[in-house]
């Protein structure tokens, strides 16, 4: 298969450019966030800020409880977009603003981040802009969350 002009090198999305329309919704997926996920993310990312694992410290600096790493939430948005596109190499641009905290209580449920998407714009070179909505409870935890995805 020959890559189209502007195609990301390596990896081809399974979603076809000609089959998506502006305004098309990508159904929401719920991602659980428990304390153990934050501990694992701290280790894998190297971000050991205690507000992400130590309740005593989080409360001492004025937070309601332990909060998720913003980058953990952003990574869930990355999962959402790469699972939709079908190939992680199809994501050529991905940016977010962290608009509110994901508070993660120390219980069996933890928190949930619910992510959905919408095709915002079709670009040249078989690329699309996907805008993500990420909510935890009633709060929007990401704003200006968008990805440019190289489709087939």
């Amino acid at each position: 298969m020959t890559a189209k002009p502007g195609a990301a090198k390596g990896g081809i999305a399974t979603v076809k450019y000609d089959e998506v329309e502006v305004g098309q919704e990508i159904p929401a997926v719920d991602y659980p966030v428990r304390r153990v996920n934050l501990v694992m993310y701290a280790g894998a990312s190297g971000d050991f800020n205690p507000i992400h694992w130590n309740e005593r410290h989080a409360k001492a600096v004025g937070l309601p409880d332990v909060i998720a790493h913003g980058m953990y939430t952003m990574a869930q948005g990355g999962r959402f977009i790469t699972d939709w596109a079908g190939d992680p190499g199809a994501v050529v641009d991905y940016g977010v603003r962290f608009s509110s905290m994901v508070v993660v209580p120390d219980d069996d449920e933890g928190a949930t981040v619910s992510i959905s998407g919408r095709i915002e714009e079709k670009l040249d070179g078989n690329r699309v802009i996907v805008v993500l909505t990420a909510k935890s409870g009633d709060s929007r935890v990401l704003s200006k969350a968008r990805a440019i995805v190289q489709l087939a």
């Binding site: 990301a8 090198k9 390596g10 990896g11 600096v61 790493h69 913003g70 980058m71 952003m74 992680p88 190499g89 994501v91 050529v92 641009d93 991905y94 940016g95 977010v96 603003r97 962290f98 200006k144």
Partner: peptide, 18 residues
């Protein structure tokens, strides 16, 4: 640094990282 919070993040790819 104790008062620092992450505000925005963006990645712009020329190709995937392998």
């Amino acid at each position: 640094f104790a008062m620092v919070v992450h505000a925005e993040q963006r990645f712009e790819y020329e190709r995937p990282i392998y």
